[in-house]
Design a protein around this nucleic acid. Structure first.
Length: 839
RNA sequence: GCCCGGGUGGCGGAAUGGUAGACGCAGCUGACUUAAAAUCAGCUGCCCCCAGGGGCUUGUGGGUUCGAAUCCCACCCCGGGCACCA
C-alpha cells in the first residue's frame, strides 16, 4: 500500500522561497508611479514596516524569530490591503562582543561579524521573511559609516557634538567610557563590572537641548504607554526655581535648583556635591580644610557604587562657611556631602530638613536645626519660632505633603503652599534673587568609546588649529587594521601610527587623528533613514526618497530598547530636521514591543541549558510551524513560554490544512456531497466570520486569536467535509489559506495554488467579509432570571423588544424560575438576551 | 518609596459591562489497525443530582448595576521601570 501523502514543509518551504528570491517579490522601488496621476488611478499608499535591526552575533535566537514573525505578518497584511510596503533588513554590526571575541581568538571582528551575518541571512531566508534584500547593509560597511561620520560632522558644525572634560563613567573591564544610559545600578550594562568615575575629555552629543521636545512629542505618537512613561521618567522634567544663595565672605553667588521654593524659609543649611569645583576653595584656610580634602578624595575614589542607596547613612563634612538665605537673610552653614550630585541642578542644594527626607536624615545625623514651615494634616501646633531640636520624637517631620505656610513671613504665612510657591518665586524674581526654572534628569550623550570595532570619529587634532573636522570629501575615515584589539586604557586605534599621523585639513601641518570610536547606538540612530535610499553614494539620502517612506509606520522590537535606542533615534531625527535634512519630527509613528520568549519559565541561556534554537525547530517542523506557534502561544506583547507540545499542536493544524486542501483539490468539481444548502450556508458563513475576525485581530496585533479563528474555520470544514459542496469547501479552505498567509506563508501559498489553479495568494487582495453572511436571521436568545442564565430560545433577528420578552417568558426553564414570583423589571438587549428581574 | 503591567480550568490563553473558560496543549473514551504510531469522531472547570436540572467559580474583601473577569474603593501576591534627581 502506498504511503499517504504527508505535509512536508522541508520540501514546500524552499520551493516557495526560491520563487520569491528569483522574482524579487518583496522588493519595492522608489520610483513613483507617475502613470497613475495621468490615469486618474490613485497611487497605492505606502507603508514602512520595520523591525529593529539585529546585532549579528552568533546565530539568530528565538527572540529574533518572534520579532520578525510579528513584523512579517504586519508587512504582508499591509501589502494585501493595498499598500506598497517597505520591509528592509540590515545589521547593527559594530560592537563589543565581536571585538571581545577578537581579543580572545585573534579573528578579525570583520570576519566573525561576516560569518554571523551570513548565518542571519540564511535563517531569515529559511524563515520566509518577506524582506526587500536590495536595500540590505551592515552599519560596519564604509559605504554606511561614511554617512554616520557625515551626520556626526553635521552635528558638530551645529554645536550639537562637542568635546569636554568631565567626570565620566568608566568600565574597568571593557576599558571604555559608558553613556549614562549604559550604567545600571552603578554597573556596566554590558559586562556587569562595577563602574568607576574618571575625569576624561570626551565627545558628547547635546541631547539635553532636545529634552523638552523629546518629552512633548511623545503625546503625538502611537507607542505603548509604558514605553512613553519610561522615556518621560528618563527625561525627568522638574519644575521649580533657581534661587541664589550668597557667600558673603568670598563674595560668590551660589544658585541652587529647588522644586520647593515654598519651603525656602525652612532652609537651615546648605550642601554642595563633592565634585563641585568650589568645594576645596571654600574650605581653604578654615579649620575644616583637611577634613574636606579627605572627604572629597574618599568619595571620588570610592566611585558611584553605594552612592545611590537611600538606606546608606548620610555622610558629609562642614565647609566652615555660610551662605545667606535670600528670603530671610539668615546665615546658614555650608557642608559638602555625597548625597548631593554634581550632575543634577547646580551641584548645590538648599537643605530643608523639615520637609525633605534626605535633608532630614542629614540634619538628624549632624544635629542641625529642623524647622516646620508647612502645617501638616496632623495639625501639630506651631510653637514660637517653629524651631525644633532634632530627634525629639514624633513631630511629624519630615512632612512632604501640602498645607498652609507657617513660621515663614507675615506675607506668606497662612497661604496654601502651592499658592505660596508661585508668590515666593514672583518675589524672588522681583528682587533679583531667583527665577522660575525647569530641570531635567537627562544628561548629554557621551559617545566616545576607547574601542576598536566602531565607527571612527572624523576629527583630527592639529597643534595650530585644534580640533578640525575631516572634510566631507575625505570621508569615510576608514577604520585602520591593527594587530592588537585589546584596549589598554586608550583606543586600540592609537597603535595604528600610520593612520593616526596625518595632516591638518585646515593648515596642512602635522596632525593626529581622533582615536576613539563612536558608541554603536550612533550607528543605529539613523539606519531606518538609509533603507529609504540605501545605495546613494552622493548623499546619506535623497530627501525625495525619505518623503516617500518616512516616518516608519510600524516599528517593532524588544522593550529593552525603550530608553536607549528609541530616545537616541528620536533625538537624531529632531536634530537632523532642525538642520534641514528631514521634514518630520518623529521617526516611528507606531511602536510595538514584543515580549520575551522563555523556556520553563525562565530566560533562555546557554548556562541554564534551556535554549531553543530556531534553526533546529525549522529544520524539523518547518518555518511555518515555528512562526505560527510563536504567534499563537499568547499575546505577542507579553512574555511567552516555549512548549514543544504546543508547537506540535500548531504543526498538526497546518498538516490538516494541507491534507484537506489536497483532498478537495483532487475531488471533482460540482459534485454535491448530499448535505444540502444548509451545510453550505453554515460553512460559507463561518468563512466570512473568520475574515472579519482575522482582519480585526491583525489590526490590533492579536495574532493568537486570529490563528485560533482560522483553526475554527478549519474545524468546521473538517466536520462538514462529507456534507458541504466541494466548491464551498474550496472557498472555505482558500479563505483559510489566505487569512493564514501572513503567519505561515509557504504552506498557504502551496494550498492556495493547489485549490485555485496556480493562483498566488500574495497577489490576491485581502478577503472582504460579506456583511450579509455575518448577520444571521435567527439567533440564540439568552434568557436570564435575576441575571442568571436559565434557558436559551431561537429568536428572529428582526423581533421587537416585546416579542423577545414574550419569547423569554415562554421558555420552560424561565417559567419554572419565575413561577409564583412578582416580575419587577424586564431588561431586553436585542441580539443578546432578556433578563427578567423577579422578587 | 513612586510609576506602569499582570493575577481566569491540570497548563498556554479567550472573553473590556451581557451565555466565563474560544482556540491549543495535556487527559479520557471510541473508530481504523494483528499491534503501535499517525489519523478520524466524541468527552473534559469544581461539587450535588431524582439525569429535568441545581449550586459554586476569574487573587482577597467591599461597592456600583437588572447584570461585573471587565467599572469604583481597599488590600494581598507576581513581573517590569525609576529611585539620595533637591
Amino acid at each position: 500500500m502506498a504511503d499517504e501523502p504527508r505535509y512536508n514543509p522541508l520540501e514546500i518551504e524552499p520551493r516557495w522561497q526560491a520563487v520569491w528570491a528569483e522574482e524579487r517579490t518583496w522588493e519595492v522601488s522608489n520610483e513613483l508611479d507617475t502613470s497613475s496621476r495621468s490615469g486618474g488611478v490613485e497611487a497605492a499608499p505606502t507603508s514602512y514596516v520595520l523591525e529593529m535591526l539585529p546585532y549579528p552575533s552568533g546565530e539568530p535566537h528565538i527572540g529574533h524569530l518572534k520579532c520578525y514573525a510579528v513584523g512579517d505578518a504586519i508587512a504582508h497584511f499591509h501589502r494585501r490591503t493595498g499598500h506598497r510596503v517597505l520591509h528592509p533588513m540590515g545589521y547593527d554590526a559594530f560592537g563589543l562582543p565581536a571585538e571581545n571575541h577578537a581579543i580572545k581568538t585573534g579573528v578579525h571582528p570583520r570576519d566573525s561579524t561576516a560569518e554571523s551575518i551570513a548565518s542571519f541571512q540564511r535563517q531569515f531566508r529559511s524563515w520566509g521573511i518577506s524582506i526587500d534584500w536590495s536595500r540590505e547593509f551592515g552599519t560596519h560597511e564604509p559605504r554606511y559609516y561614511r554617512w554616520t561620520q557625515w551626520i556626526f560632522l553635521e552635528l558638530y558644525k551645529a554645536g550639537l557634538a562637542y568635546r569636554r572634560e568631565a567626570a565620566v563613567k568608566w568600565c574597568p573591564n571593557d576599558q571604555t567610557v559608558l553613556a549614562n544610559e549604559q550604567v545600571v545600578d552603578g554597573h556596566c550594562e554590558r559586562c556587569g563590572a562595577l563602574v568607576e568615575v574618571r575625569q576624561l575629555e570626551q565627545w558628547f552629543l547635546r541631547i539635553t537641548d532636545y529634552a523638552e521636545r523629546l518629552l512633548g512629542d511623545l503625546d503625538g505618537i502611537e507607542w505603548p504607554e509604558h514605553v512613553k512613561t519610561m522615556q518621560r521618567n528618563w527625561i525627568g522634567r522638574s519644575e521649580g526655581a533657581e534661587v541664589v544663595f550668597r557667600c558673603e565672605e568670598l563674595g560668590v553667588d551660589y544658585p541652587v535648583f529647588t522644586t520647593r521654593p515654598d519651603t525656602l524659609f525652612g532652609a537651615t543649611f546648605f550642601v554642595m556635591a563633592p565634585e563641585h569645583p568650589d568645594v576645596i576653595r571654600l574650605a581653604e584656610g578654615t579649620e575644616h580644610e583637611q577634613a574636606v580634602r579627605a572627604y572629597v578624595n574618599q568619595t571620588l575614589t570610592d566611585g558611584g557604587e553605594e552612592r545611590g542607596s537611600l538606606e546608606k547613612p548620610k555622610t558629609g563634612v562642614p565647609l566652615g562657611r555660610a551662605v545667606t538665605n535670600p528670603v530671610n537673610g539668615e546665615q546658614i552653614p555650608m557642608f559638602v556631602a555625597d548625597y548631593v550630585l554634581m550632575e543634577y541642578g547646580t551641584g548645590a542644594i538648599m537643605a530643608v530638613p523639615g520637609h525633605d527626607e534626605r535633608d532630614h536624615g542629614f540634619a538628624t545625623a549632624f544635629g542641625l536645626p529642623i524647622r516646620r514651615v508647612i502645617e501638616g494634616d496632623d495639625e501639630l501646633p506651631a510653637d514660637g519660632d517653629g524651631e525644633e531640636l532634632p530627634g525629639d520624637g514624633d513631630d511629624g517631620l519630615p512632612y512632604t505633603g501640602d498645607g498652609p505656610l507657617v513660621n515663614s513671613h507675615p506675607d506668606f504665612d497662612g497661604m496654601q503652599n502651592r499658592e505660596a510657591l508661585r508668590a515666593i518665586v514672583e518675589w524672588l524674581d522681583r528682587e533679583g534673587k531667583g527665577h522660575a526654572s525647569i530641570n531635567y534628569r537627562l544628561r548629554d550623550w557621551l559617545v566616545s568609546r576607547q574601542r576598536y570595532w566602531g565607527c571612527p570619529i572624523p576629527i583630527v587634532y592639529c597643534e595650530q588649529c585644534g580640533a578640525v573636522p575631516v572634510p566631507e570629501e575625505q570621508l569615510p575615515v576608514v577604520l585602520p587594521e591593527v594587530e592588537d584589539y585589546a584596549p589598554r586604557g586608550r583606543s586600540p586605534l592609537a597603535a595604528a601610527e600610520d593612520w593616526v599621523n596625518t595632516s591638518c585639513p585646515s593648515c596642512d601641518g602635522p596632525a593626529r587623528r581622533e582615536t576613539d570610536t563612536m558608541d554603536t547606538f550612533v550607528d543605529s540612530s539613523w539606519y531606518y533613514l538609509r533603507y529609504c535610499d540605501a545605495h546613494n553614494d552622493e548623499a546619506a539620502w535623497d530627501p525625495a526618497a525619505l518623503r516617500q517612506w518616512m516616518p516608519v509606520n510600524q516599528y517593532i522590537g524588544g522593550v529593552e530598547h525603550a530608553i536607549l535606542h528609541l530616545m537616541y533615534a528620536r533625538f537624531f531625527t529632531k536634530a537632523l530636521a532642525d538642520l534641514g535634512h528631514l521634514d518630520f519630527q518623529e521617526p516611528f509613528q507606531a511602536l510595538f514591543t514584543q515580549g520575551m520568549v522563555t523556556k520553563d519559565g525562565s530566560k533562555m541561556s546557554k548556562s541554564k541549558g534551556n535554549v531553543v534554537s530556531p534553526a533546529s525547530i525549522v529544520a524539523r517542523y518547518g518555518a511555518d510551524t515555528a512562526r505560527s506557534y510563536i504567534l499563537f502561544v499568547g499575546p505577542p506583547d507579553q512574555d511567552a513560554d516555549w512548549s514543544d507540545e504546543g508547537m506540535e499542536g500548531v504543526h498538526r493544524f497546518l498538516s490538516r490544512l494541507w491534507r484537506m486542501a489536497n483532498e478537495v483539490a483532487e475531488r471533482g468539481e460540482g459534485l454535491p456531497s448530499g448535505g444540502g444548502a444548509q451545510e453550505d450556508l453554515l460553512l460559507t458563513r463561518k468563512a466570512h466570520w473568520a475574515i472579519d475576525k482575522v482582519s480585526g485581530d491583525l489590526r490590533r496585533f492579536a495574532f493568537n486569536t486570529a490563528i485560533a479563528a482560522v483553526m475554527e474555520l478549519l474545524n468546521d470544514c473538517s466536520r462538514m467535509r462529507e456534507r458541504a459542496d466541494v466548491s464551498t469547501q474550496r472557498f472555505a479552505l482558500s479563505t483559510a489559506a489566505s487569512l493564514l498567509f501572513p503567519f505561515a506563508p509557504h504552506v498557504c501559498a502551496e494550498v492556495y495554488d493547489r485549490l485555485n489553479d496556480g493562483e498566488r495568494v500574495w497577489e490576491q487582495p485581502w478577503p472582504q467579509a460579506d456583511q450579509t453572511y455575518l448577520e444571521q436571521a435567527v439567533y440564540e436568545l439568552v434568557c436570564q432570571v435575576n441575571g442568571k442564565l436559565r434557558d436559551r430560545v431561537q429568536a428572529n433577528a428582526d423581533a421587537t423588544a416585546d416579542e423577545l420578552k414574550q419569547l423569554c417568558l415562554g421558555a420552560p426553564n424561565v417559567r419554572a424560575h419565575i413561577d409564583g414570583k412578582q416580575i419587577v423589571k424586564e431588561i431586553v438587549v436585542p441580539g443578546k438576551l432578556v433578563n427578567i428581574v423577579v422578587r
